[in-house]
């Protein structure tokens, strides 16, 4: 005879330590970062200002690249490894176009037109390459295990780097271009540089937000990101939408490339890998798939990196990559959904 023993015991519901500890740790980390920033401000406010401005400048660039990453990931859950290298190629195209073709040397008001031309050309270039990559390679791998499109992206990254390394393109070493900035300088930061970055980046970011939230194709993007099959059943052209997202991402990389070239006045085949890692960290920090997050993450990483390099209490540029990477690791392990993302229920 089986006996059933059930009794309502009034055992207290256990408080899940996990989320509480996590939140506490999060506050501790934020607190430490705040203390570090304040220490930097207090010890040398001028240097801090300079670093902060550089950080803003770089951060906006990172935001542009991060946005491209996050949009593509949001729609087909693919980390486009080649995105950073596409950005790198665009720096070379911009350099070649502006200096060799249009003869830009001293940067001033007269270079606004070449800048616009370069932006248009590079954005088209970036968009075209990205869309082609999607059409020729990623599309066919949509039903394959994730390993396949990932490795394809790695392969594309290699191809882009290889092309950049050719002597007739950029060569194996860093190439400095004879582009000179003028105008006022504040704490080592060219004001016009910063202005240019802001003036180009902010409208682009606003345009992206507008497209995604207010247009029909933006709605299609969000639908496809949520549920591809469902979107298809609703009559949305899924392939077209995905291509469009790739085009946007590529265009953003292209624009970022122009700006990066003008800011750094040098081109290097390895820039893509390094910057790609930084931009991806920014995207994850903000919450992968989230556009606002990409911008916030980009700015945050940019400022942290520049204060690390230029501030009074920093490890220096030698260690920047490691610092950024450490941020990525900590995020991935403890809070993969980032600042604005929703926690996923995936468990191991």
């Amino acid at each position: 005879m089986a006996t059933l023993v059930v009794g309502g015991t009034k055992r207290k519901a256990k408080v899940r330590l996990g989320p509480v500890v996590e939140r506490a740790l999060g506050f501790v980390v934020l607190g430490l970062v705040a203390i570090w920033l304040i220490a930097n401000i207090v010890s040398d406010p001028n240097r801090f200002l300079g670093s902060a401005l550089v950080g803003l400048q770089n951060g906006l660039l990172y935001a542009l690249v991060a946005l491209g990453y996050t949009m593509v990931y949001g729609i087909i859950e693919l980390i486009n490894f080649a995105h950073g290298d596409l950005f790198m190629l665009s720096t070379i195209v911009a350099a070649g176009l502006m200096v060799s073709v249009m003869g830009v040397g001293q940067l001033g008001v007269g270079t606004i037109l070449p800048l616009i031309v370069a932006l248009i050309v590079c954005m088209a270039f970036g968009g075209f390459i990205n869309v082609s990559a999607e059409f020729l390679a990623y599309r066919r791998l949509r039903s394959a295990p994730k390993l396949a499109p990932l490795m394809t992206a790695v392969g594309l990254s290699f191809i882009f780097r290889g092309i950049a390394q050719q002597d007739y393109v950029n060569g194996s070493a860093q190439k400095n271009w004879a582009v000179v900035w003028g105008g006022p300088v504040v704490e080592g930061v060219f004001v016009y540089k910063l202005l240019m970055v802001i003036v180009v980046t902010v409208p682009l970011l606003l345009a992206m937000t507008y497209i995604v939230s207010k247009t029909k194709v933006g709605k299609a993007m969000r639908a496809v990101a949520q549920d591809q099959d469902g979107a298809r059943l609703m009559g949305i052209n899924v392939n077209g939408t995905i291509s469009f997202v790739f085009a946007l991402g590529g265009a953003l990389a292209g624009a970022a490339g122009v700006l990066y070239f003008l800011v750094q006045t040098q081109t290097y085949y390895d820039t893509g890998t390094q910057l790609g890692l930084i931009a991806f960290t920014a995207a994850v920090l903000g919450g992968i798939g989230n556009l606002t997050g990409a911008v916030v993450g980009g700015l945050a990483i940019g400022i942290i990196q520049s204060i690390n390099e230029g501030g009074a209490y920093g490890l220096g540029s030698n260690w920047s990559q490691s610092v950024v990477f450490l941020i990525l690791i900590v995020l991935m392990v403890f809070k993969p959904e980032g600042i604005f993302g929703r926690p996923t229920t995936e468990k191991v």
């Binding site: 005879m1 023993v5 059930v6 009794g7 015991t9």
Partner: peptide, 20 residues
């Protein structure tokens, strides 16, 4: 079907945790 089952009313001595 299965043999009969006897529910033990609450207040019995068995601890539900260890007897289940």
């Amino acid at each position: 079907g299965p043999p009969p089952v006897t529910p033990v009313a609450p207040g019995g001595n068995a601890d539900p945790v260890t007897s289940n």
